[in-house]
Design a protein around this nucleic acid. Structure first.
Lengths: 232, 232
DNA sequence: GAATATATGTGAAATATATCACAGATAAAA
DNA sequence: TTTTATCTGTGATATATTTCACATATATTC
């Protein structure tokens, strides 16, 4: 699955979000420690519960972070793209992976190992603050997910997610390449339910649909649906 | 609501979980910066969305961390007791509060402000690692919550939560002081649904019930129910 | 192009849970 | 004690969502 791993360090690190928030002096310390990892499409980088001590930075491609239940049901938590960082929980606390990471397409990552991170922190204490920033960001994301799951019905959750996914993944023409099944996995809902909601939105010209793709036509109406769902 | 705030620092800090994981040399730095806060029962320390830059350590009492929807529905995320730490997200990243903190009883807290924390980190870089530990722990907790909400039905969620709450809050005689409404708020479910599940467990001698209290009689059976729920 | 796989669209039935409407029970206040 | 408020217990009904069972459309492979 993991195609290759070289020790070529990285210009890629310079563009990462982690790095984006980092002081320049932290940069050289970390870049020199990173190793590049190549993943084929559908390769699984790690499973939930695995031991694992590395943090990853996405250079190219996209990595899905998901929870796979024992029943086989999947809940997608996030899709990481350049210059996102993931894997930080297990990397930093030494515990098992809290989720599964899968390549959605051929991808290239930079890997930083726990010991190297700890060592880098003692050289450059500012790095710890940057990592704290990443963890806080992740906590806000997951907390929002809890709130949505507990408070919103499918229409509300779908409106919320679609807005976010659209912002992050749509191409120049507003096309979001995502099957309705995959979208359903993001909500903790079934494909059928998602389809029915999308159909009703299509009839109101809020979205347009085709095989494997969604266009958001009316961002404002979606936002209104999301807001309204919170008030019920 | 906030009864008083003195600058008396703290032996209390020494017992905290934050501190429990900390190097002794970090200790004196932080203790000297903490201020004590007294809260009356039902006092609200902060609301979700509030600005806020302090982290708190529970000295006495208990603080409920919850999300309150615009509809008024409440989802309880956690109850913090000595020596728990909370409020770390906003304190560390400077953003708004992600949840509401309410005193369930008269409580005493230690408050550490953002600037003091940052300053303490530059004196004692090890403190940053301790904070990273707290954030990772919180991420694991919230991630588990997402998984439970998305994957488990009410019976499964109730079994899970009850095991955890029982471990954390039951007194020597195994009595858990918690109304069924409050328990329902922990699950994102209604009191009625919780009651019906508890009744069925009572008939199987898994729990015993009285006004405002629950006894877990058969921990193992509860665990079995939780495991089984994951496989559906 | 034919065959095969994958994605979408859609109704009917089954299921889980919420909502509603009460009737005790128990505790707190007067 | 009487009153009042707050919990608990429980059925009937309503509702959201899943499950199931297909038909159709669109890609991919042979």
């Amino acid at each position: 699955m993991v195609r290759s791993e070289t020790s070529e360090p990285g210009r890629g690190l310079r563009n990462s979000h982690l790095i984006g928030e980092m002081r320049p002096e932290s940069l050289s310390v970390l870049s020199s420690l990173a190793k590049r990892v190549q993943l084929d499409k559908r390769a699984i980088l790690f499973f939930q519960q695995d031991p694992g001590d590395a943090i990853y930075v996405v250079e190219h491609g996209s990595i899905e972070i998901s929870i796979i239940g024992e029943s086989g049901r999947k809940l997608s938590l996030n899709v990481m793209r350049p210059p996102d960082v993931f894997g930080e929980i297990a990397a930093l606390d030494g515990g098992p992976r809290t989720a599964t990471a899968t390549a959605l397409e051929d991808s290239a990552l930079l890997r930083l190992r726990r010991n190297d991170i700890i060592r880098a922190i003692s050289d450059q204490p500012g790095i710890a603050l940057d990592l704290i920033g990443v963890l806080c960001e992740r906590l806000r994301w997951v907390s929002q997910q809890v709130e949505d799951l507990a408070m919103l019905d499918i229409e509300g959750r779908l409106a919320n997610r679609l807005i976010i996914l659209h912002r992050k993944f749509s191409d120049e023409r507003g096309r979001l390449n995502l099957s309705q099944s995959d979208l359903a996995d993001f909500l903790g809902a079934t494909r059928e339910s998602v389809n029915k909601t999308l159909q009703s939105w299509k009839s109101r010209s809020i979205v347009d649909l085709s095989r494997g793709a969604i266009w958001v036509l009316d961002d404002a109406k979606l936002a209104a649906i999301a807001v309204q769902a919170r008030q019920l």
